[in-house]
Design a protein around this nucleic acid. Structure first.
Lengths: 250, 250
DNA sequence: TTACAGAGGGAACTGAGTGCCATACGTTGG
DNA sequence: CCAACGTATGGCACTCAGTTCCCTCTGTAA
């Protein structure tokens, strides 16, 4: 099966569709995205015109722009709905949970979108790396994810000192770590475990900013204490490592 | 003096120019940037065409694209040279210094670019907020700053475990904090102290990631130790605050 | 005076994105 | 059966950013 046939993970639209209506015409948005991606792979993004795309899809030129606000959007047909999913998730999140944990879980939504179609994600990654315009366009989506995280954290930390600042810094750190893990997986050709790669990267953020503390010892009593000794000039991240190991050895 | 007359801080090009050649024609790049910014303020970005700009500047249309790769670039005429300055600064940086401190200092280069022309920066900020395309374009510059930071930190932490990951997370955190402080200053209309606003924001990053530790006690001996006690379930950032105050009370 | 180089001007072209209107189709109501 | 209507689509023409190619002008060196 060609990879562009399963590129969108919207419910009820791929091969899981009922068999008895299998021959119904695919939604035009899908047809267009498929044709576009085929052509981008064959000739490259810049040397593919919108006219080429609609010619292959067998539809009118005007229809393309009804389903995609720009040519670039055809490369990222799923980000918009993923962003909506994430917003809904954060709106419905349990506000008694660790705020950073909630955001880390929200980042997992994005990861699953990529991991749902490894071949497509990898090919798109390679395409995007070659086209500066696409990198910029993708960046604008990344920024929107970041803003969504920051918005949630700002709400959660509304009363804290420098809450908004901390929210933005943490959101940026989460995005950077997530993308670091994601890119590692994409560079590997989508072979390894995407979840593990990203979890490892996000762990760094979680240990520093998560309320549950380094070892995730959320359930322990507040009365317990840890005593730690560190050289005065020690780097802070090393202090954190030491606190972490101190907390782990219980 | 109109604000667009001093918008670029490149050496030897503004009113500091020798008087005896004061009547020499201004460089076309400046003339174009001035005309463009005037028009963007008057009619808005989208309703100003490149033809409008070159008409006001009194030059040929082709010349615009000789000096600016795109219409958007006319809004950010100084970012490219600022990026070059920063790259040079990091290339020449003393590698025995705290890597994070070097990066924080490099971020100051960007801040000074903005602070050099408060009125212009504020007006451009308001313009950019209204035009999604400009936000995206500016974002691509921000990303290049971030990549530059990350590149430097990756070199410095080449031997450390997860050095590249840490580099990217710290670079993102620095950029987020810097922009948080910068935006606060821009929203205030450029009235307060930009340096103070950004320094406060960057302090958060410095305390966590800087090697000199929370209180900046870089000069103290490695033999000295600090003992700290913390509740086991405490949030890490609160632990850090406590370490900070412990180190301060010497 | 010629030769040359480099800055600028200008016409014509490509292609993305938009606005407007025509057409086709399915549905509802008479 | 037909008319009215909303929706999906196609087609055309337009604007404007960005590019290509070529021209002119001007200052400089041989």
């Amino acid at each position: 099966m060609p990879i562009w046939a399963v590129r969108c993970y919207v419910p009820g639209m791929s091969e899981a569709r009922e068999v008895h209506e299998a021959q119904k015409k695919a939604p035009m948005r899908e047809v267009l995205a498929e044709a576009a991606f085929q052509l981008f792979m064959e000739r490259g993004f810049e040397r593919t015109t919108v006219d080429d795309i609609v010619a292959r899809a067998g539809v009118g030129r005007r229809s393309f722009f009804r389903y995609f606000p720009s040519k670039d959007d055809a490369v990222f047909p799923d980000h918009e709905s993923c962003l909506a999913d994430m917003t809904a998730f954060l709106d419905a999140a349990d506000d008694t949970r660790d705020a950073v944990d909630v955001v880390l879980e929200a980042a997992g939504i994005v990861l699953r979108m990529y991991a749902a179609n490894p071949e497509f994600s990898v090919q798109r990654y390679r395409l995007t790396r070659q086209v500066p315009g696409l990198r910029t366009y993708e960046l604008s989506f990344v920024r929107r994810y970041e803003r969504t995280f920051a918005g949630y954290l700002t709400r959660r930390w509304a009363d804290a000192e420098d809450g908004a600042l901390r929210a933005e810094v943490v959101a940026a750190a989460v995005v950077a770590a997530h993308n670091n893990g994601l890119r590692a997986w994409l560079r590997s050709g989508g072979e390894g475990d995407a979840e593990a790669s990203v979890d490892h990267a996000l762990g760094l953020v979680r240990r520093i900013w998560g309320e549950a503390g380094p070892a995730g010892a959320g359930g322990t009593s507040d009365d317990e204490v840890v005593v730690m000794v560190a050289p005065k000039g020690a780097p802070m991240w090393r202090v954190i490592q030491r606190v972490e190991s101190a907390l782990r050895e219980d």
